[in-house]
């Protein structure tokens, strides 16, 4: 129902020479996480991992990924936003 845009994902991984990729999907797309991992690991030399938790927006990015040497975080369903300043 919603496009996974795997071509763009695969080309970005190859272009950036990413080795470890974290996949973050909104609730409505989480059931496709295995398809994304399979595509990444079949079509690139990168390893892919799935973020278990929330994905409410681009304001909701996983933290601490550098500890695990994740070099690319991919989030679906959202785009850039302007953070309000207080």
């Amino acid at each position: 129902m919603y496009k996974l845009d795997l071509d763009k994902l695969i080309s970005t991984i190859k272009q950036q020479k990413a080795k470890q990729v974290l996949i973050q999907l909104p609730d409505g797309m989480k059931q496709k996480a295995n398809l994304v991992v399979d595509a990444v690991e079949e079509q690139t030399s990168a390893k892919a991992f799935i973020w278990l938790g929330s994905c409410y927006g681009s304001c909701d990015l996983p933290l601490g990924m550098d500890i695990l040497n994740i070099d690319l975080v991919v989030q679906w369903g959202h785009n850039k936003f302007n953070k309000e300043m207080w």
Partner: peptide, 14 residues
Amino acid sequence: MPRLLLLDAKWDGE
């Protein structure tokens, strides 16, 4: 810091 790729996940209908 890891890099970030945001994908819109467009609806596949018209």
